[in-house]
Amino acid sequence: YQDQEQRILKFLEELGEGKATTAHDLSGKLGTPKKEINRVLYSLAKKGKLQKEAGTPPLWKIAVS
């Protein structure tokens, strides 16, 4: 689980600052079920590491501290 968090954070960091992506996109790029990706995304957002942008589907990006 920790491993997934690292992979997602790394992927988003590599996208570049301010760039956002969807759970669907992450799921495809990382070869992980979207349900699992979503769980990790919401967990990271709760920890303040990610920012969720409203929309359908929601967009995710690295939180700027």
Rank of each mutant, 00 (worst) to 15 (best):
K52F: 06
L41R: 00
G31M: 11
S43T: 13
E17W: 04
I37E: 01
Y42A: 12
E14Q: 14
R7C: 05
D3H: 14
L59P: 03
K34D: 07
Q2A: 05
T22P: 02
I8W: 00
N38T: 07
I8S: 01
Q51P: 00
T32I: 11
E5Y: 03
Y42S: 10
P58K: 04
K34M: 10
L44E: 01
Y42G: 09
Q6R: 12
K46E: 13
S27E: 06
A20R: 10
T56N: 12
K61V: 01
K49S: 08
A63I: 07
D25S: 08
H24Q: 06
L30Q: 01
L41F: 02
T21N: 02
L15Y: 06
T56E: 11
A45C: 13
K35Q: 06
A45Q: 10
L26H: 00
Q2I: 10
F11D: 03
P57E: 08
A23R: 00
K46C: 07
A20N: 05
Q4E: 06
I8N: 01
K52E: 03
V40N: 13
I8F: 01
T56S: 14
P58F: 02
I8C: 06
A20Q: 11
G31L: 11
Q4W: 06
L15F: 05
Y1K: 13
D25P: 00
K35P: 11
G48D: 04
A20L: 07
A54E: 11
K34Y: 09
G31C: 12
L15W: 08
A45L: 15
G31K: 14
A45W: 10
I8M: 05
K34V: 14
T21E: 03
D25Q: 15
T32S: 12
G31S: 13
Q6N: 09
A63T: 06
R7G: 06
I37Q: 01
G16Y: 03
R7P: 03
E13T: 12
T32W: 13
G16M: 03
E17T: 10
G48I: 00
L30Y: 03
A63Q: 12
V64S: 13
K29G: 08
G48L: 02
G18H: 09
A54D: 10
Q51N: 13
Y42W: 08
S43V: 11
R7N: 08
F11K: 09
A23F: 00
K49Q: 13
G55Q: 05
N38W: 03
A45E: 14
L15N: 04
D3Y: 09
K47A: 12
K34P: 10
G18V: 04
E5A: 09
F11L: 11
H24W: 13
S27T: 05
E36A: 13
K29E: 10
G28Y: 12
